[in-house]
Design a protein around this nucleic acid. Structure first.
Lengths: 204, 204
DNA sequence: TTGATTTGGTACCGATCGGTAACATATAGG
DNA sequence: CCTATATGTTACCGATCGGTACCAAATCAA
């Protein structure tokens, strides 16, 4: 690297994404830290530092750590909705392929060796307080996921769609918690196979 | 009283029981608080107070909070082993009934409105550090549970016992995390029914 | 250019965290 | 009985927690 002359500016030195506004940087940093280390294990100081800013700016954009946590989960829930739209766009009208795409993506998620399962479900475990602002987001998200999966199973013309959806839903939730409690030799490897077997058993 | 299915932890709520030695009181208080409020949410001061003793005595019996957490989980894992012995004793040689008893107890566990799922799995979510002393206990416990269930499915003469055991295992893990992320109208209500259907699909 | 808004920096707050020193009091065993 | 061990009490440690006051620098709009 060429030596710099002055201590000034350093536009393109090593700032990865300097263009993002502080709020986005904070949310990105918080998302990464919360997911990898756990919500309660991460302090606001660490988030501010990882975001390349300070605590004061953090509290100008989020009224509390709890509010930041809720926003972190809200954004993830939004990305999940985008995923549903994505598979719908990929296989328009073909509900069986949509279900297959869902299963494949879920399997990839559950088998990611770096993954720590579902951030929303993890948050529900960490935040036992009944009145935590994140709980609204979590419960609403899970309900929506289950409903969406139920609708897809029905559209796919499978038997007992509600029951099938719950089987698949519980299966995925189980896989995403097992990958944390059984990081070695876990049963998630069979996830897709099991899912396909379950779907097949609801064939008309 | 029949031994509990597994890992729900709750000791007697309001038993002052001054007769118990301090170590047991501490362990009981810690179990209750850790399970209901979460491990990271509970401080050693609160544990000592709930145990009717003080922090000094706590640290005379446990070298650290982490060690106390590990012991808390170790004891639960032991109770789980007792449960396996229990159903074996109840239905000696009748592996199908043993499997039925397992399913019924698991269903009761997953549908307990006061329950917060599996304490071991919850701990795995809360304690992301790979070198936490509790992780040994958790992983060993889960491995043992899965192996035991696999053995039972095999003894029951069902098809593809390893696959069946993993289906049931993931189903239970999913149910015990869902009861936290979906406290209202959750899919755990179908747990036993789903389990029976899965078992039936492995009938010879 | 000016004036208002946003951001960064630092120092601080009270509370709580996990953990310990020192000493007083019980309780047990010989 | 006396002595050793286990327990209770209090005060304290440094570190960190979530959250804020204050002011300077940068940015942006008019």
């Amino acid at each position: 690297m060429t030596p710099r002359f002055s201590t000034e500016a350093a536009e393109s030195d090593l700032a990865p994404v300097p263009a993002l506004p502080p709020r986005e940087r904070i949310l990105n940093a918080a998302s990464d830290l919360f997911y990898r280390q756990g919500i309660r294990a991460v302090g606001v100081d660490a988030i501010a530092e990882a975001a390349g800013t300070n605590k004061m700016t953090l509290y100008r954009h989020f009224e509390s750590k709890d509010a930041l946590v809720a926003e972190y989960l809200r954004r993830l829930s939004g990305k999940s909705q985008q995923f549903w739209a994505h598979i719908e766009r990929e296989h328009p009208g073909d509900f069986r392929r949509q279900l297959g795409a869902w299963l494949e993506a879920a399997g990839k998620d559950a088998n990611d060796p770096q993954g720590r399962g579902c951030a929303l479900a993890n948050a529900a475990v960490e935040l036992a307080e009944k009145d935590h602002p994140a709980r609204r987001v979590i419960e609403e998200h899970k309900r929506a996921q289950r409903d969406r999966l139920t609708k897809l199973c029905a559209d796919a013309g499978l038997n007992e769609p509600e029951l099938l959806a719950d089987e698949l839903f519980l299966l995925l939730e189980g896989a995403r918690v097992c990958c944390q409690s059984m990081p070695h030799d876990n049963p998630c490897g069979r996830f897709v196979r099991v899912g396909e077997a379950i779907i097949a058993s609801h064939e008309k």
